[in-house]
Design a protein around this nucleic acid. Structure first.
Lengths: 153, 153
DNA sequence: ATCCTTGCAAAGCATTTGCAGTCAC
DNA sequence: GTGACTGCAAATGCTTTGCAAGGAT
């Protein structure tokens, strides 16, 4: 978030190299945008923004770049919800809030007590638990206003 | 799960009536299957099973029936994961285990401490929290065996 | 009799893929 | 120079929709 442009590029170069992949302008632009934003954009949103700096980029390349970043551990794919997947450029553990009306996903400050999850995991017989995802659902400020009426979406 | 066939139909009839919808053989068959299984089938899996008892049913009708059941509160749509959505015919609060290799979703015995979630919800400024979803990820027994090698799927 | 529901086929989205040209190494 | 990456367009997979015929109330 607060990393300098150079260090952002270094992070990407090292992660790509470690995974035997090449550094390209397109991947850099996608990572830069994802790393800088606090929103959790869909592939299409990334495409629209990145296109401003890399005019020729295609949506397919954005998809491929996003998957590359996920593979390198530089991004997380958020596949909750109905519509399109959303991508999170922050790799530290944190949870999410999702508005059931408009679909927007925001970060949740704070972190769940891992002991609680460990307790649940212990009851999962015959299953090797490696992680978990917690998502709080509800209404964002804009959607909460019309909430008693029909859903906007 | 242990309800008699008649009570299952009664549950459905009442829920449909309460929502101003009609009782049909197709909806009954979908609900019966979903209510009886412990798996969390995709729409296609529901279709394949229900077709054995209702030969003429179409996949579109299965989709429509599933959405109707969700709308009546008789089923929950699980939209985690990448591929197709999965449906859960059990409406009591519970969490899920998802195998990241094969995508199978199973019920998790036990329940998280709501105080922990309440604490997190309290830190969500400007957001009206109405619920949450917790999913533990890992490997099911069959996938855990080949886990150190490449993913089966 | 009314109008909701079904089944079919076609359309709609999000995402992936094949391939020729291009670029990073 | 070589193999990976891009961009395009076509294909794929899941889900939804339009509409005429059929069915529940």
């Amino acid at each position: 978030m607060f990393d300098s442009p150079e260090s952002v590029e270094t992070i990407l170069r090292q992660a790509l190299e470690a995974n035997g992949q090449r550094f390209t302008e397109q991947r850099a632009a996608v990572f830069r945008y994802l790393h800088a934003t606090e929103s959790h954009p869909t592939a299409d949103e990334v495409f629209l923004h990145v296109r401003e700096n890399v005019p020729g980029i295609s949506l397919a390349t954005v998809y491929k770049s996003l998957e590359t970043l996920v593979g390198c551990g530089l991004a997380v794919k958020l596949t909750y919800g109905d519509g399109s997947a959303r991508y999170d450029g922050r790799t530290d553990d944190h949870h999410h809030l999702r508005c059931v009306a408009c679909g927007v996903v925001t970060d949740l400050p704070g972190r769940a007590d891992d002991r609680e999850v460990a307790r649940l995991a212990a009851s999962a017989q015959e299953f090797m638990v490696t992680g978990y995802r917690l998502e709080l659902t509800g209404y964002c400020t804009s959607c909460a206003q019309g909430q008693t009426r029909a859903h906007p979406a």
